[in-house]
Design a protein around this nucleic acid. Structure first.
Lengths: 218, 218
DNA sequence: TAAGGTACATATACACCGTAAGTTTGTCAA
DNA sequence: TTGACAAACTTACGGTGTATATGTACCTTA
């Protein structure tokens, strides 16, 4: 009688729906009840496929990390690092909620492991010693996540928006108390064509060039 | 009869207690009810001094930022940036919960404004153009927050702990699947004397040196 | 001294949250 | 047909932020 084909739930379907929910309404809109609803199921049914909500959070972070393009064997380390940085920023921009989750998530999933391993491989094959590879990994990764974190905490998305927001903020800011902040806002952030996102590649290249110099000098 | 002197609640007392609660039990232990309890008051009484919980979160982030040593007028930009980076890391290490809050907090408080302004002043007085100051600010800040974020997401605190954790992780890791991860763990992180925190100054100096070179070359 | 206003603490209530425990249902093998 | 098992559902508990309404203690002014 019931012609509807029962599509069974699965860990994968749960996680995919969770990513969709977080994308649509932010991480705070991801509750077990809403997630169940999204899947046409009661909240408690989800517990047949994941141990608890923490496991869901770990899982969706790993999904986002899995979207980052990883270096292939044989790639030159410098363009490879450049590319993976840009790809990481793109992934976290698509899923802004994932950035804040990084801090609280302890258990790396398989995609994260593969990601880290391929980055280290790229550096080691590029001639970095173990210690220098650790240095390079740390500084590049810190920069990537830090930049994304800062970018996401800005109260605007586009350059035009930035100018508007800056204008209203400056208007109600005690100018003589924060003169350099005002200067930066008025003479830089409020200028036409400004886009904070453009800063990303400046810092990235500064770091990559410095690492390259350090490597060739040694 | 009642000899107890009534100490009235205030926004400041609320925020201070909130910082204490978050320090003691993490940010998820900070609830309005527990906070009221801490202050000997019902949860709803807090709303006479703060608009809502978000305002508390904004407020305690600003308190943490206020603990960062800021450059004084006249300081050389490079040691000033170095010092404020180290001081920022120390502040966020004392209050780890604040790092994750940075992403979700939009409204900078007075301490944050003063902090940003003094950093910009240091760079501008150090000879950076507005554009270069923006570049430098972005790359240094991104690095600082990114590093802290990474450091906090490590599942260990000390070098010895790191070695232990690495050992158990590697033991259950498919070695041939993540060879470079294993190499890094065994030949670096598990070595005596290892401490991820030492990476901080390497990356910091790499960035500061690169900025200095860029400035003198120009 | 009395009256009125203001500031702030409280009490109650609502809609949500994660999840423990127990019960029912759907599906497939014997 | 029966039995077993997986997976869905139901109910319930103790927590969350906060809207609303209700005291209550103090200060100001007459």
């Amino acid at each position: 009688m019931a012609t509807s084909v029962r599509v069974p739930l699965s860990r994968e379907r749960v996680l995919t729906a969770a990513v969709g929910l977080a994308d649509a309404g932010g991480i705070e809109s991801l509750s077990m009840r809403r997630l169940g609803q999204e899947l046409g199921v009661e909240a408690m049914s989800l517990y047949n496929h994941v141990a608890n909500k923490d496991e869901i959070l770990d899982g969706i972070v790993d999904i986002v990390v899995g979207e980052i393009e990883i270096p292939s064997p044989g790639d030159d380390w410098k363009p490879a690092m450049r590319q993976r940085a840009i790809s990481a920023r793109a992934a976290f921009t698509r899923h802004p909620w994932a950035t804040g989750l990084m801090e609280s998530r302890i258990n790396p999933g398989p995609a994260s492991m593969r990601y880290y391993d391929s980055v280290l491989r790229s550096l080691r094959e590029g001639g970095f010693s173990i210690e220098m590879a650790a240095h390079a990994f740390s500084v590049i990764d810190s920069y990537i996540y830090g930049f994304i974190l800062q970018e996401l905490s800005l109260p605007f998305d586009t350059g035009e928006e930035a100018a508007e927001v800056a204008e209203t903020i400056v208007a109600q800011m005690p100018v003589d108390e924060y003169p350099y902040l005002v200067e930066m806002a008025v003479e830089h952030a409020m200028q036409p064509g400004y886009d904070y996102g453009n800063e990303f590649e400046f810092g990235l290249d500064l770091i990559l060039d410095a690492l390259e110099r350090m490597q060739t000098d040694a």
